[in-house]
Design a binder for these strands. Structure first.
Length: 451
DNA sequence: ATGTTC
């Protein structure tokens, strides 16, 4: 099997596993590898994994997985990150690109009108405090079945059925609620988007999970998270972890990996608040989906958009994995990392000008050793600031030619240029070489609404 | 990522 293994340096320490091609491995910054080594210094860490889209993050690198013992291990708000349950969903459609092509421009303008986008964007609908608390505690089963946003099929095609158990709204600060109450059904900024895509290539038409997906049809991809609500929850508990660290019996490896013992009161409080943010994000993507369905139907009344899958890539979850040969319940932190769905599928979005992929698990030994994780996207090669400083407007325009880009904000989008990201093809190649996943569909962007 | 260096 082909992965980079870094043996334990102390007794009881776990190995670090890096799943990357040699080409990608040579490009990885030493600092992001160091973040993986820092992670295994924490108590009760049973596994640390890097994926081919790895780059420097806050505490844990983006493209990083940290697995902890549920009794003796920790939970780290920094290892989940600021955008709790940032995630991606793919919707297939019955629209043929050839048929809708001349109206792509019109459709993207209508999307811009209908979908609140950009930092600070606010919901068009409002929810009572009681409704809000049920949305964040119960996720999609409440949002879909009680508030009538979408279908039972939407719930079934969502990771964890759109509900992280254990969510407790009383563990969420008033400030987080205040920021979040007007943000359900909004896209946000940064790398968040709604994209119109073409099913460009099918690699395995026999696969049962894509038998209803036709080449040449349009698809829609939504990428967003828990907005200011999750950001505030992350900030609240990161501050608390940093303040509390001296009272715990472990040293802090890298200041931003501040953690609570998972079994402690504080650790449980963070888990319960984080679960609220996760459920918020599932509901957010669901509300955006329902809006998008109405928006597309304004132009194409016959349009039907079906959820292929919704997956999160910033979260800590209780899952069962095989550790040293036997299955047990563990706490898995994934930052910029995706868990393969039960049916084996995963989504790998590219940057704004490049293709995205639907992949499927290779069900290999590597799948077990990665804790069923794959990359979450292309992965940055440049930080936001560096991108804005070094990429010119002309270079950026050239890199996205042929794709209609509309934006909810006035920012330059240079920090989201394809030139600031790895080529997604090299990430897919790495997933294949390391026996984690193979591509099923390639999705080509036609138009994108950015935040 | 983010009421974008609260």
């Amino acid at each position: 099997m082909k992965y980079y293994k870094f043996e334990p340096e102390k007794p009881g320490q776990c190995e670090v596993r890096l799943f990357a091609s040699e080409t990608i491995y040579r490009e990885i910054e030493q600092d992001s590898l160091q973040q993986l080594f820092n992670a295994r210094e924490l108590p009760g860490v049973l596994g640390v994994v890097g994926l081919p889209d790895i780059h420097l993050g806050y505490g844990l690198p983006i493209g990083g997985v940290m697995v902890c013992d549920v009794d003796k291990g920790v939970i780290s708000p920094g290892a989940v990150g600021f955008d709790i349950n940032c995630g991606v969903r793919l919707l297939s459609s019955n629209l043929e690109v050839e048929h809708i092509k001349e109206k792509t421009e019109e459709l993207s303008q209508v999307m811009k009108q209908d979908i609140p986008a950009g930092v600070g964007s606010e919901s068009r609908q409002s929810f009572s405090r009681k409704e809000f608390s049920k949305i964040v505690e119960q996720g999609l089963p409440y949002t879909v079945s009680e508030l009538n946003y979408g279908t039972e099929e939407d719930i079934q095609n969502c990771e964890e059925n759109g509900h992280i158990p254990g969510a407790d709204f009383s563990k969420v600060s008033a400030k987080a609620y205040d920021r979040g109450k007007t943000q359900l059904g909004t896209l946000g900024g940064g790398n968040h988007f709604v994209e119109i895509q073409k099913i460009d290539q099918i690699y395995d038409s026999e696969n049962e999970h894509i038998k209803d997906i036709n080449p040449g049809n349009a698809a829609f991809m939504i990428h967003t998270g828990s907005r200011g609500f999750g950001h505030q929850i992350a900030q609240d508990y990161i501050d608390r972890a940093k303040n509390k660290i001296q009272s715990y019996a472990f040293d802090l490896p890298g200041k931003n990996l501040a953690s609570f013992p998972f079994s402690s009161k504080e650790g449980q409080n963070y888990f319960r608040a984080m679960a609220c943010a996760a459920n918020f994000a599932f509901a957010n993507r669901q509300l955006l989906t329902e809006q998008l369905r109405r928006t597309v139907q304004r132009i194409f009344p016959e349009a039907r958009l079906n959820l292929v899958y919704d997956l999160t890539h910033n979260i800590a979850k209780k899952e069962t994995h095989v550790i040293s040969g036997s299955p047990r319940e563990v706490l898995v932190h994934r930052k910029g990392a995706t868990r393969l769905a039960k049916n084996g599928l995963a989504l790998i979005p590219g940057s704004m000008g490049t293709g995205s992929f639907l992949v499927t698990s290779l069900n290999s030994e590597a799948t077990v050793l990665s804790f069923e994780s794959v990359a979450h996207g292309a992965g940055r090669t440049m930080g936001r600031r560096e991108a804005k400083r070094t990429i010119t407007d002309q270079q950026h325009r050239d890199s996205i030619r042929g794709i209609k880009v509309v934006s909810g904000s006035n920012s330059s989008l240079l920090d989201e240029s394809p030139l600031a990201y790895k080529n997604v093809d090299t990430v897919i190649e790495s997933l294949q070489k390391t026996e984690l996943a193979r591509p099923l569909l390639r999705l080509k962007p036609l138009a994108v609404l950015k935040g």
